[in-house]
Design a protein around this nucleic acid. Structure first.
Lengths: 275, 275
DNA sequence: CCAATAGTGTCTGTGAGACAGTATAAG
DNA sequence: CTTATACTGTCTCACAGACACTATTGG
């Protein structure tokens, strides 16, 4: 029979949770940016790709594998978001950037050490604002979407040296909302279940693109509409029609008196986010 | 200096995480349904309200306060979703219902006992399918939305005996997506931060209503379009125009040869979800 | 001039908002 | 006949898809 308490204060004074019911948590960060790739033709504009930041693990488990930046939550007084920001600051020295909770991944076997539940966050930056990368083990990987249908997603990540293959299976879980579960099909190159985080995060970004102004978190202060359109296209993975695109973003941007010249073709006006 | 391991297996054999880095987790469930309320006028159709299931706590902390059904995660081998389903089964004896991860709430002070991170789930049912309520401390509360603007949300929950006031402050957190943080303004009646879970969950439901078929998880097998429209209206908290509504749901439902009669006015055809 | 991008005009079809109208049961 | 809901017809307006067209630079 449990002791009878007369008040909550009295109860709390006695309270000591059993260590058996406890576990560890981490915050993992999917940091996404857009990279420019020079083209040989002087007329052509730069090709753009999405990039994500990965870190090479230098200890077990998954030693020498790539993974998303992340770290253990300090249970004493830290929130998961503070934990995510702390890790981000460690890796990139960046603060005050777009950060959003993605999903909590909790497969009991996702960490071979012990039970570790991970809450993942998506962060967006304009890579050019990044002045210094603190961690030497960190590297930007370009995202190449090879396949994305109702059954599976296949992505290749490459940093010029290493190539990482991501291949996850999608299974319809619930017909009314079209929600599906993602499971690893072939995850030799990435640590933990970070392949699932990447696939979920890229999809979230794609969805938010259409009904929010989220894209401007990945843009410099001044940009041309052509550049902005190319960012949309690389995230949505499809070509957009110019007039339609300009109509959609017309009331989100503000024309400045600056121009971008020296591109081998007609100069374009520089715009900025209206906010 | 850390010991040098030659393989992951060798490392794992030695691994023992420090108890200092650990915490507890719970899964909390926002179970939402729609209730019918009889009207005195024999011609009028039933009024509908949203309802959520609350449980009266019979132990500290927050003894005698109402809260969402929830329970501690078994860290050994249970997923958060399994934990949520287990709790749901305990409370309502229901299985195989719509369940979706909402958000992970992690304010270090949200539980006065110790650090407890909570992952919340939204569950939807048609209340009429519920044959037996197992837990005598559980009760359905009707949701009355009093105010919902950019600054705050005010809700009253009532089960005919108790009335619970929910009042949370919304603060714009990020302008590009319009995301905001919710914080309790006045939370005397509900345990923990469950007021925040309720507000977040109701908003998620409202959003998903427009771009998914999620509503059919709250409907019986056969229903009239008038009933379906009233469910939409109570969730969206606004009147809809008949022709527009019928156009939108036309290809989601299937007309059956059944009719609903005896209502004091023209009978209506019964439809079912096309799936 | 050429190649490439910048930027605009306009047609068309879709679909939501709005309102008015007809249909039909119970009492 | 009245009342309340069931259900439909149709006008308008906003907007996305599509395509064609003009403008302007560096080389």
């Amino acid at each position: 029979m449990a002791k009878e308490y007369k008040s909550e204060d009295e109860f709390l004074k006695d309270y000591d949770i059993s260590k058996f019911d406890q576990l560890s948590m981490t915050a993992d960060i999917l940091l996404i940016s857009v990279s420019d790739h020079e083209t040989s033709n002087y007329r052509k504009t730069n090709k753009k790709t999405m990039s994500i930041l990965l870190v090479k693990r230098n200890e077990y488990p998954y030693k020498d594998k790539w993974c998303l930046p992340g770290g253990f939550l300090n249970p004493k007084n830290e929130t998961l978001e503070e934990c995510a920001m702390r890790v981000l600051k460690q890796e990139t020295n960046l603060e005050n950037i777009y950060l959003e909770q993605l999903y909590t991944f909790d497969d009991p076997k996702r960490d071979p050490r012990t039970r570790v539940v991970s809450t993942s966050y998506m962060a967006l930056i304009d890579k050019n604002k990044l002045t210094q990368m603190i961690n030497k083990n960190a590297s930007w990987f370009d995202v190449v979407l090879l396949e994305d249908n109702e059954k599976e997603v296949t992505i290749t990540l490459t940093n010029g040296v290493d190539t990482i293959h991501v291949n996850v299976k999608k299974e319809l879980r619930e017909k009314t909302t079209g929600r599906y579960t993602v499971t690893s099909l072939d995850n030799k190159d990435l640590a933990f279940d970070h392949d699932l985080v990447i696939v979920s995060g890229l999809e979230r970004l794609r969805n938010k693109l259409s009904y929010t102004d989220i894209v401007f978190n990945m843009m410099p202060e001044y940009f041309t509409l052509g550049e902005l359109q190319k960012v949309y296209e690389v995230i949505l993975n499809k070509k957009l029609l110019d007039p339609a695109f300009r109509r959609i973003i017309a009331n989100k941007v503000e024309k400045t008196d600056k121009m971008k010249t020296g591109e081998g073709h007609r100069p374009s006006a520089l715009f900025k986010y209206k906010g």
